[in-house]
Nucleic acid binder design. Structure first.
Length: 836
DNA sequence: AGCACGCCGACT
DNA sequence: GTCGGCGTGCTC
């Protein structure tokens, strides 16, 4: 119904609002609107509502009607949190699309979309009943009850804190008994998470903000030098006399008192005497930057042509692929396009993979776009995220650089979305639902906004490449490196032959060692890439073959030397490395295989004078670890950088002349239909780090199969052949882009129940989804994680199937049916659409 | 997802 | 016998 039909007249009818709540239940919840809110409520506003017996949640208004629900009595909305909508109409459409496509609930999408600062919820709290006295009580109390009551004196506690304090898992029965005895009170505390930042400011009161009053003031405080100093400092910073209105803004307390010879108590006195007054203003968490510098970015001829081609392509395609070799200068083109879109009056979203969104790139963009640019990063605090969200709503930000989840920001007039490093797997959310792919969502978003999408990559995903080949996406290539830089030379180190010739030392081929030595002697930098962290992925008893395994997962433990511990990379379980083998008592426990840590150690032996740094999850976990390692490297304070995937992204370094790649074989032979693609992308991306300017770089790839067709293809830089081969392969085995995949994982603590559930589900699928190919059920590579056994079924839906929606519905119904059976009640089923 | 209620084993 | 474990069903 129309809410604004009768302006001015307060409607007396009772309204009901349908709310989207952040819970995985596939429906909306209807609440009653309190009469005073009738004229205030709008679709898209957030509302606080009671949920269940004692929870309070934040929901979003999806619709308002005057029809009461028939099945139940609606509860009242407690409060509306916004004066204007926080969620836009387009976002609701997107949420719905995502829920349908990724087979999850809109509540789950909403949960992922809203920064938690916008989702206040309640915490159940326990408090001592003030009318209660333990000594005078007629009831008996258990030891635990007494302990808790003592602890609660003068302090409220959360449920979770209590269960921790008492060391029991279920705390409810105990609390219920205490409530019954009148000893405690349970209540809900709503936590407002978002707090605007405020600043204390000082200004002269109106009485003293005029010249005559000030003259009089100086006469009276002439004997009080400390007060005089403060007034002088104020007048020095705020030109009250020449600009009367300047006093209105006052001076930040921090700035006024920045000189620590000034006395805080004298300021207090001045305030008490009515000379100064103190006030608070809301300030942004984002620092005001100097005005953007407007210099124009000079594009090379190739860049200019590519830009023109992109603009032409935008006229015909909503999505365009820009394939530009590493170092071809895609960023400059992006910047130009962003500028144009903003000048045209529309909003722009620039997505980057998590580890590529560095302070360096932000600073560079900041210089050009100033404070109209918002930054949305998972490392930012929640308050900062809320400010970006609101900044989009109120028009402060026209442009946002962000990671995956920035796709959820409340744009209302998006003109351009750039997805840089489009092939990057971090765009796909793995856990929890919605398991969405931000690149694909961006394409849908663009359609909703009638905006354009630019997908950029040196090594596009095979699926994207195919769309471009087919003409569904526009296709622009940029295949010359910027300036005169040439593509690096790739060389294979044949490990088999070197082993025979005994030139291999540890894990290093003679060729790589010599190349590193040469580079170091020329004062050039080296990157060594090994896609495996830790010291060594396995420990092995040389006498009996015993291997330490994780107690919760079906994996062997990785040895981390710096922590002196065996660590599980799946659940985080840790244990000490035993001195003796627990089965045969042998002391001959040996590490097998190489991680970054061990490579680093070995490099130190070979090149004792070189400055070596390691960059992997373990060295970058701390807040600034990543930035500082890159800084060191950029400033030339590191000679050799050893790292995992992380070294494939990030900055372009000018002095790297050599890249060493370990274990190319392991990447290639990984049992997955995407292994070639991944190996190709990884090798090409790391190689791109080598040789930027005049010096052409060298890449040494260590392999035991130097004749492998994939390596030959990479060596020849024959990118088109690579994609051609891949597409042919995928077509034959009907993998994406020739089919759509849905990965269904069945989880249960009992291995047998898990298997049976998978078998049962497979049978249901087979009869409910004709026309699909089913693979499995089978154990995934890691068949147990966190004490849950796993089985998986892969569903292949032919490309272009008109029944995609129907098949998905059928799939969900099969799962529902399985879970109805008693023995599978406790089974968890995870559905992953378009798994990567 | 939480969270309350209810039914079962191992301890005083 | 009770306490504390976890399985089950519901939330406007």
């Amino acid at each position: 119904m129309e809410l604004f039909e009768q302006p001015g007249t307060e409607s007396r009818i009772t309204l009901f609002a349908e709310l989207m709540l952040p819970i995985p239940v596939p429906k909306l919840f209807t609440y009653r609107v309190p009469l005073p809110l009738n004229d205030k409520i709008m679709v898209g506003q957030r509302a606080i509502v009671p949920f269940g017996d004692r929870k309070i949640l934040t929901g979003v208004v999806v619709s308002v009607t005057d029809q009461p629900p028939k099945q139940y009595e609606a509860k009242y909305i407690l409060e509306l949190l916004d004066d204007f909508p926080s969620v836009t109409e387009l976002q609701f459409k997107l949420f719905q699309w995502m829920a349908d496509y990724y087979l999850c609930t809109t509540g789950e999408v909403m949960n992922a979309a809203l920064p938690s600062g916008l989702k206040l919820s309640s915490e159940s709290m326990v408090q001592l009943n003030p009318a209660f006295n333990l000594e005078e009580s007629d009831f008996d109390f258990s030891e635990k009850e007494r302990m808790l009551l003592k602890r609660l004196v003068g302090e409220s506690m959360e449920y979770s804190a209590i269960s921790k304090f008492l060391g029991v898992k279920t705390v409810y029965s105990l609390l219920k008994s205490l409530v019954g005895k009148g000893a405690i009170i349970l209540y809900e505390e709503v936590k407002e998470k978002y707090k605007p930042r405020t600043e204390r400011r000082i200004r002269l009161t109106d009485v003293y903000a005029v010249a005559s009053a000030l003259e009089g003031l100086f006469e009276t405080i002439g004997t009080k030098p400390k007060q005089e100093a403060i007034v002088l400092k104020y007048l020095q910073d705020v030109p009250v006399l020449s600009h009367a209105e300047a006093n209105k803004h006052g001076l930040a307390h921090k700035q006024l008192m920045s000189d620590d010879t000034l006395s805080e108590s004298s300021l207090r006195t001045l305030i008490k005497n009515g000379v100064f007054e103190e006030f608070e203003v809301v300030v942004s968490r984002f620092e005001e930057e100097p005005l953007p510098d407007q210099h124009i970015i000079q594009l090379s001829e190739e860049q200019h042509q590519a830009q023109q081609a992109i603009l032409a392509s935008f006229k015909e395609h909503s999505a365009t692929l820009l394939q530009g070799v590493t170092g071809s200068g895609k960023t400059e083109i992006y910047i130009n396009l962003i500028k144009q879109a903003i000048e045209g009056g529309s909003q722009v979203l620039y997505l980057l993979p998590e580890i590529a969104l560095t302070t360096q790139i932000v600073q560079r963009l900041r210089k050009i776009f100033g404070t109209t640019m918002g930054v949305y990063h998972s490392k930012f605090s929640d308050n900062e995220r809320v400010e970006v969200w609101n900044g989009i709503l109120n028009g402060r930000f026209k442009f946002v650089v962000g990671v995956r989840s920035a796709i959820f920001l409340p744009f209302d007039n998006l003109g351009l979305i750039i997805v840089d490093e489009e092939h990057d797997a971090s765009y796909k959310q793995q856990e929890p639902a919605p398991r969405y792919h931000a690149r694909d969502v961006a394409v849908v978003m663009a359609q909703l906004h009638h905006a354009k999408v630019l997908l950029g990559s040196a090594t596009p995903a095979v699926e994207t490449y195919y769309q471009a080949l087919q003409g569904k996406y526009g296709f622009v290539k940029l295949d010359k490196r910027f300036g005169e830089a040439r593509l690096p030379t790739l060389v294979l180190a044949d490990m088999g032959r070197e082993r025979k010739q005994k030139t291999v030392k540890g894990e290093f081929s003679g060729l790589l060692l010599k190349s590193i030595g040469d580079a170091l002697s020329k004062k050039e930098q080296v990157i060594v890439f090994q896609n495996r962290r830790g010291y060594s992925p396995m420990v092995n008893c040389e006498d009996c073959g015993w291997v330490p395994k994780c107690v919760n997962c079906a994996v062997s433990l990785t040895y981390h030397q710096y922590r002196h511990a065996l660590v599980c990379h799946y659940c985080g379980y840790r244990e000490a490395l035993p001195q003796n083998c627990p089965t045969c008592s042998s002391t001959r426990l040996k590490t097998v295989g190489y991680g970054t840590e061990k490579l680093e150690e070995e490099l130190m032996l070979h090149f004792p004078d070189a400055r070596i740094q390691r960059m992997d999850l373990d060295t970058t976990r701390s807040k600034s670890g990543y930035e500082s390692i890159l800084d060191h490297f950029e400033r030339g304070e590191t000679d050799i950088l050893v790292g995992t995937q992380m070294v494939t992204k990030g900055l372009d370094f000018d002095h790297v002349s050599l890249v060493g790649i370990f274990n190319a074989d392991r990447m290639i032979h990984f049992p997955d239909f995407r292994s070639y693609e991944r190996a190709y992308q990884l090798i090409t991306q790391v190689s791109g780090r080598a040789g930027r300017r005049e010096v052409p770089g060298t890449v040494v790839i260590q392999t035991s199969s130097p004749d492998h067709p994939l390596l030959v293809t990479i060596l020849n830089h024959s990118m088109e052949k690579f994609y051609g081969d891949q597409l042919e392969d995928r077509r034959q085995h009907s993998y994406p882009p020739f089919s759509r995949l849905i990965d269904v994982t069945i989880k249960h603590v009992d291995k047998k129940v898990c298997r049976e559930g998978a078998d049962a589900l497979f049978k249901l699928f087979r009869s409910a989804m004709p026309g699909t190919k089913l693979l499995g059920p089978g154990e995934p590579m890691v068949s147990k994680i966190r004490n849950q056994f796993l089985m998986s079924i892969l569903v292949k839906i032919p490309r272009g199937s008109s029944e995609l929606g129907a098949l998905k519905q059928a799939l969900m119904q099969c799962i529902q049916q399985l879970l109805k059976e008693k023995e599978h009640r406790n089974t968890r089923v995870i559905v992953d659409v378009d798994p990567v």
